[in-house]
């Protein structure tokens, strides 16, 4: 190999490797580390005297909002309150009797099944446990 072309290879190879590693480390830097506070396993969502039958509240379930729904018969259901369409936070609409997403008028029934509008999937359901006065909500064990 000629001296000249050897230097060319060395130089362009060196620059390419450098550029590659700089860019790769910048991308790695920009991708945030997995959050230390992982999704909550069980949180207290409300107390038993808090919700009237046929009403609901939003509570904080780890990093996401959760929806605790009290049915007409007094029972409870809970969902991750994140719309399966484009992630808006849903709410319970007593007047319509559905869980409703304001962003694109998506509707879910009280079982969390998508029944109208763009949402493609049901809401993620959570488990409800009542212990004394307190209502706990947790991720269903799969």
């Amino acid at each position: 190999m000629k001296r000249r072309s050897f230097i060319n290879v060395l130089l362009s190879g060196g620059i390419a490797v450098w550029l590659g590693s700089v860019i790769a480390s910048i991308i790695a830097y920009l991708l945030p580390p997995e959050a230390a506070v992982s999704d909550a396993s069980s949180v207290k969502a409300a107390t038993t005297d808090e919700l009237e039958p046929d009403s609901a509240k939003i509570f904080q379930f780890g990093k996401k909002p959760g929806l605790l729904l009290r049915l007409e018969d007094g029972g409870y259901r809970a969902f991750v309150a994140v719309c399966t369409h484009l992630s808006c936070t849903v709410q319970y609409r007593k007047d319509m009797g559905v869980i409703w997403c304001a962003c694109h008028n998506g509707k879910f029934n009280k079982k969390g099944i998508n029944i109208a509008g763009p949402p493609p999937k049901p809401l993620d359901e959570l488990e409800v446990h009542i212990r004394g006065e307190d209502i706990f909500v947790s991720k269903p064990v799969t």
């Binding site: 939003i58 509570f59 904080q60 909002p65 309150a81 719309c83 808006c88 936070t89 849903v90 709410q91 997403c101 304001a102 962003c103």
Partner: peptide, 10 residues
């Protein structure tokens, strides 16, 4: 408020 339902008119 990340823990409030989405308002109308987004």
């Amino acid at each position: 408020d990340p823990f409030a339902p989405a308002p109308e008119g987004i």
